[in-house]
């Protein structure tokens, strides 16, 4: 199971990467493996405002529906259209090609509740 060192994680199995003040969000390798073959990803529209813990994205496999929650309040700044067309990218490349959305956060990210790679790895073991 891959857990890149340079990312932050939530206990809901999402990863967060800070890119020039934006937060890129996806689901972890562990999460995609648990869901199984992903057949549908419902992404929000760019410009939509989200509150912390709002549902950002729905990721559906043949077996179940997984919800991705927003780690912060903010505005959707970018979405990965490629995963809408090819949901299996989330399975094959959860940290790179299978990223989901980027958020412009309102204010600073409170990362006290986020996990580093070591802590996240422990959570999934």
């Amino acid at each position: 199971m891959q857990v890149p060192e340079d990312l932050k994680y939530t206990d809901e199995h999402e990863w967060i990467k800070q890119i020039d003040g934006r937060l890129r969000v996806g689901i972890t390798d562990y999460a995609q493996d648990q869901l199984g073959d992903i057949v549908y990803v419902e992404i929000p529209e760019v410009g939509k405002s989200v509150a912390k813990e709002d549902i950002l994205v729905e990721v559906e496999s043949t077996k179940s529906v997984g919800e991705v929650y927003s780690p912060v309040a903010g505005t959707i700044a970018a979405v990965n259209e490629a995963v809408a067309d090819n949901p299996e990218l989330v399975n094959s490349s959860p940290y790179e090609e299978g990223w989901l959305v980027e958020i412009d956060p309102e204010g600073e990210l409170d990362d006290s509740a986020l996990l580093d790679a070591t802590a996240y790895r422990e959570l999934t073991e």
Binding site: G36, D37, V39, S61, T62, K63
Partner: peptide, 10 residues
């Protein structure tokens, strides 16, 4: 429920 992949098995 699956061995490797529901889609591939299907």
């Amino acid at each position: 429920v699956q061995y490797e992949s529901v889609l591939e098995e299907h």
